[in-house]
Structures are given as C-alpha cells and as structure tokens.
Design a protein around this nucleic acid. Structure first.
Length: 392
DNA sequence: TCTGGGGTCCTAGGACCC
DNA sequence: TCTGGGGTCCTAGGACCC
C-alpha cells in the first residue's frame, strides 16, 4: 500500500502562515514579482473561490478579484517547509519519497497494526502536519501510486481517501479521464475520439484497441492505469517516484524578455546571463554537462536546438559560447525573440572531470566569483556585457 | 501592462560502427 | 563488392507535470 500526500495550495498557505495578515484572504502567489505580468503559481482557497487557478495570467486573476493580495514566489521558503515535512514523515514510515516540492509518498504496507488502520494513519499524519505547520493536505491511500495520486486529486482540499478493490469501480464511475495524472489534453482528445470519456469506460476498453491507437508503451500504460494487480503494475509505477532518479537530468533557465527583439547584441547578452545562471547552479550542485540546449520562442512558434560536445563544462562563458554557436546554426536571420532559454544536460558528477591546468585556473576564478556573489548578492561580479541588460 | 519557469519521459529518424 | 541486421548515440519535437 502507498500513501500519497499532496499539500493544499502549498505556496499560498505557507505565505499565509508566515504572514498572519494574509490569513483568510484571497492570496495569489505569482511566479515573478511584476504583479500584472506573470502567471499564478499558486492561489489560496479564498482566491480559488473566485475561479482563480494556477497557470492563469495574473492580469486575468486580478480582474476577477482586484483586492487579492499579491505575493511574489519565494522558493527558498517553500523548500525549507517541504524539507521539514519530509523529516516529520519519517516518524511514520522508513520509506518516504519526495516527488515534487509539495508532494510526498510513503510506503505503508505492514504498518496497519501499529496505527490501527490505514485511514487512522492518514488522519494522524494530517493532524500532525496541521499542528506543526498550520498546513492542510490531502491524503490518498491505494495499492498503486497512480491511484493514490488520483485519490488526492478527487478529494482536495483537506481530503482523505482509501482506494482498494472493493471501492475502486464505484469511485471511478463517471470520473473524467483527465483526472488521471499523465492524461493531458492530447491523450484526452484522442481517447474522447474513441468514445472514452470516463475512467470506467477506459477501464473496460480492450487492451488491443488501446495499443492499436496509442502504441505499445502508452497503450499498455492506459490499460493498466486503473488496475490494482501489483504483479503486472510495472508501468503504473513508472510514473511514480519509485523509479525516479533523484539526480537531476538537466539544469536550465529561461526568461521572457521585457520586449520582443531581434537585436543580436541584446539576445547575446540574455544568452550570456542565462548561461551564467545555469553554470552557477551546475557548480553549486557539482555537475558538469556535455549537452547544451537553447530554446527560442517567437510570436507563433518555439524551437529547441541542442548539441553534444565531447568536453563537459560548468563554465558560464563556455556554455554561452556553445549556445551562441547553436543559435548561429539556425538558418536565415535571427527571428524576433520573445523568450529564450539555455539548459545543460548530459550531466556528469563533477569529480569525474579531468582537471587541466587552464581549467584549474578558471575554476579557481569561478569559485572566487561564486563566493563574492554569495556574500554580496547575485551579479555583484558579472561579465561586463551584462551591463547592457542590467540584471541587478 | 494581456500566458512563467522549472522539469521529465518518449519517439522517430539519421549517423555511425561492427 | 554488395547487402543487411543490430546497437548506440544524437537531435528535434511532442506530451505531460507542478
């Protein structure tokens, strides 16, 4: 048995706990500090009552609820609280996974006799988190990760549900397929085209039909997703945290420019800044990477380009030089750029990097730069070209 | 003032090697 | 000399998640 815990309106609730003046009020946490030029990263339940949802533009959100309190996203706070919750959960199971900042998974098989029942354990954990942090969460308990996750989704907020073979079919009757984590807009449209709208319809669709329409991998996954037969649930776990490698696969940053531009020098300056940001994070987590990717978004389309190099790097200048080269490969003129991103993948743990003399010198330089910036603030020391866009 | 920014995984096709 | 199969790496793009 697995227990999935999903914090309710996590960012907004943390803000309300830290600042009591925000409690009981509609709160919008924006992913940037510009109140009108961002999207909603999280909304308190008071704000959700106005129809505000995460992902919505802040402009729209403030139109329906002009008196909402706006707070800029501060991930350091949420990470701290999230780690504390993670620690607390170890009191209840030796096997706790942290899948995203506001979601946790516990293996709870065999713990029933200690806590009474699985539902009792769920109640206990909810109470403990509320007492310790003032935060509500939703708890789903099920034989598979995907069903536990579904449980939290359909019982939010402050929910608690146990899904097993006895009640599964009742619970999924008439439930829209898009409630399942992993079924997004594209799969929903395709399934609906086949006449499959609800979870119970999906569960009775023959495997051959699903595989014919969605291929071996997705078809099989769709067939298994609502089943509890653990002996065949390898693909159900695939979306869960138990096969997740905690090491990152890529490190990237992207940014929407204050205004569209096709000015090469301005684009290069942003590229340089993003490269420095990526490099700094890579060094902090002791990674180097061989593949540099850039992402460019113009008015109507966006594209990714990447190139793999033989020598891994975590040097901002080097990442910039590589990303500029990748940008230069694009045929024709540089498009009007609305947003762009740089990311580093093919990550290698730092200690594997052979150190050459020149590299050593540069690393000493970069590490000194990181220390100055850590002490006196980001961008205290930065490449001169960044004056053009003034990141500070 | 009119849609962010951070990720993961999968697939298909091409290049290259044995 | 010609042909083919299999494996691996790489790239671009799609889909999805929070």
């Amino acid at each position: 048995m697995l227990m999935h815990i999903d914090m309710d309106a996590f960012f907004a609730s943390v803000e309300q706990q830290i600042n009591p003046a925000l409690r009981g009020k509609p709160v919008i946490v924006g992913s940037r500090d510009n109140k009108y030029h961002t999207v909603v990263a999280a909304a308190s339940y008071e704000a959700k009552a106005y129809g505000i949802k995460s992902g919505m533009s802040s402009y729209e959100a403030l139109k329906v609820c002009p008196h909402a309190e706006f707070v800029a996203c501060d991930s350091a706070k949420y990470t701290y609280v999230s780690r504390e919750i993670f620690e607390l959960l170890h009191d209840y199971s030796p096997c706790v996974e942290h899948s995203t900042i506001d979601e946790f998974d516990l293996r709870i098989a065999g713990l029933e006799p200690i806590f009474g029942s699985f539902l009792d354990l769920g109640k206990l954990i909810k109470k403990r988190i509320r007492e310790a942090f003032g935060l509500n969460c939703s708890v789903g308990i099920a034989p598979t990760w995907i069903l536990a996750k579904l449980g939290t989704k359909i019982r939010k907020p402050d929910g608690l549900i146990l899904i097993n073979d006895a009640n599964l079919d009742t619970i999924i009757k008439g439930l829209p397929i898009e409630k399942i984590c992993g079924i997004g807009p594209a799969l929903t449209a395709h399934l609906q085209g086949l006449g499959v709208f609800s979870c119970d319809q999906l569960k009775t669709t023959p495997q051959e039909i699903l595989i014919d329409n969605f291929g071996q991998s997705t078809g099989h996954w769709l067939y298994q997703v609502l089943r509890t037969d653990l002996s065949r649930s390898d693909l159900v776990f695939k979306v869960g945290p138990y096969t997740q490698n905690l090491e990152p696969k890529s490190i990237g940053h992207s940014y929407t420019l204050p205004r569209e531009t096709r000015d090469k020098n301005v684009i290069y300056a942003w590229l340089r800044m993003l490269s420095e940001m990526v490099a700094e994070r890579a060094r902090k987590s002791h990674f180097t990477g061989r593949t540099v990717a850039i992402w460019i978004s113009s008015k109507n389309d966006s594209s990714n380009r990447q190139k793999t190099y033989s020598i891994p790097t975590n040097d901002g200048w080097e990442i910039f030089v590589r990303s500029r080269a990748i940008l230069g490969q694009k045929k024709g003129i540089i498009p009007v750029v609305k947003a762009l991103g740089v990311s580093l993948s093919g990550l290698i743990s730092d200690c594997a990097l052979p150190l050459l003399t020149e590299q050593k010198k540069r690393e000493a330089l970069l590490s000194a730069m990181d220390r100055v910036n850590a002490r006196y603030g980001d961008w205290t020391l930065s490449p001169a070209v960044l004056n053009l866009i003034n990141p500070r």
